[in-house]
Simulated scan of single mutants.
Amino acid sequence: MRLRFVLSQTIQGISRNLAMTVSVALVTFISLIFVGAGALLQIQVENLKNDWYDKVEVSAFMCPASSSTPNCAQGEATQAQIDDVAALLESDALEPYVEEVYLETKQDAYEAFQEQMEDTVWAQTVTEDQMQVSFRVKLVDPEQYQIVADELGGRPGVEVVVDQREQLEPLFLILNRTTMLSIGLAVVMIVTAVLLITTTIRLSAMSRRRETGIMRLVGASNLFIQLPFMLEGAFAALAGAVLAVGGLYLGVKYLVEEWLATSTPWVQFIDTGDVLTVAPFLVLAAILLAGISSLVTLGRYTKV
């Protein structure tokens, strides 16, 4: 009987403030869309790091015949210098950091260049002698690339040491900043949602102030009086959470899985499973949002 009364009061309150309830649901929806997008972006960043960092190599390019680099002032790297770098990479000192070493000769570099630039003028003008010897070093732990780079840099015959990680960092920086932007917008929208929920509950409580006064006179508990108002806010916030989860699910399914993932299959993108992982946290956030807003408002506006 009491449950039926609480539910009837909740439905009555929603119908009285339908426009505000819809507004709360929409603002909560937008807020949680940004929160969910930020979480999914962070998952995507971690996926890319796990996938690409494992493939990061440090490349040591030996001095070619013509180079303006100070380290190559004595001309092209000699065979002794090449052997010295190879011995260093295979030494016990670097064994904990180096997983595999590949030596690219001038012929290998020339063949790779011809394959990549097959239809260009450069392919006809470049000769094998103009290529340079290089070492491709796969690391045990890509996070420790600096140790290997420091050992190779400045050695006789080494023109430059290139870390592929440096080419990936700008991408991850952009993605991380996009995540922070999403979270910042989400915070603004969540504050807006809290204000709307408190306003909705306040209006509902004020419109039924006489009813709550009578309920208090006949001995109704605070929880029994306040529960309908709390359920109004929870219903609106929960509706927004469901919309947010649905929007993220459809966005990932059609934009990521059926478009991006099929056009770039070598990239490990997020999927709908990640959305379902994030979904419970979004629903929980909506419940907490409504709960906090209710506690802030009801103590004052349900007094006699």
Results as ranks from 00 to 15, higher is better:
residue 116 Q to L: 12
residue 153 G to Q: 15
residue 134 S to V: 01
residue 139 L to C: 10
residue 143 E to L: 14
residue 157 G to N: 01
residue 109 A to W: 01
residue 142 P to Y: 13
residue 132 Q to L: 13
residue 119 D to C: 03
residue 129 D to K: 09
residue 105 T to I: 08
residue 143 E to K: 10
residue 161 V to Y: 10
residue 170 P to T: 00
residue 143 E to Y: 14
residue 113 F to M: 03
residue 155 R to E: 04
residue 144 Q to H: 15
residue 113 F to L: 02
residue 121 V to R: 13
residue 147 I to A: 09
residue 160 V to D: 14
residue 170 P to S: 03
residue 171 L to I: 10
residue 117 M to L: 14
residue 102 Y to S: 12
residue 161 V to P: 06
residue 146 Q to Y: 05
residue 140 V to G: 06
residue 135 F to N: 02
residue 144 Q to P: 09
residue 147 I to N: 04
residue 131 M to W: 05
residue 138 K to Y: 05
residue 120 T to L: 14
residue 107 Q to P: 00
residue 105 T to Q: 04
residue 127 T to R: 04
residue 172 F to A: 05
residue 115 E to Y: 15
residue 125 T to W: 12
residue 156 P to L: 02
residue 169 E to D: 12
residue 162 V to G: 05
residue 151 E to Q: 10
residue 116 Q to S: 11
residue 138 K to Q: 08
residue 174 I to E: 10
residue 107 Q to S: 08
residue 147 I to E: 11
residue 137 V to M: 09
residue 117 M to Y: 15
residue 140 V to F: 07
residue 133 V to G: 02
residue 118 E to D: 09
residue 144 Q to V: 11
residue 116 Q to P: 05
residue 138 K to W: 06
residue 169 E to F: 14
residue 148 V to N: 07
residue 173 L to V: 06
residue 124 Q to K: 09
residue 108 D to T: 04
residue 101 V to L: 00
residue 174 I to N: 11
residue 154 G to T: 07
residue 117 M to R: 13
residue 108 D to Y: 02
residue 105 T to N: 08
residue 147 I to L: 13
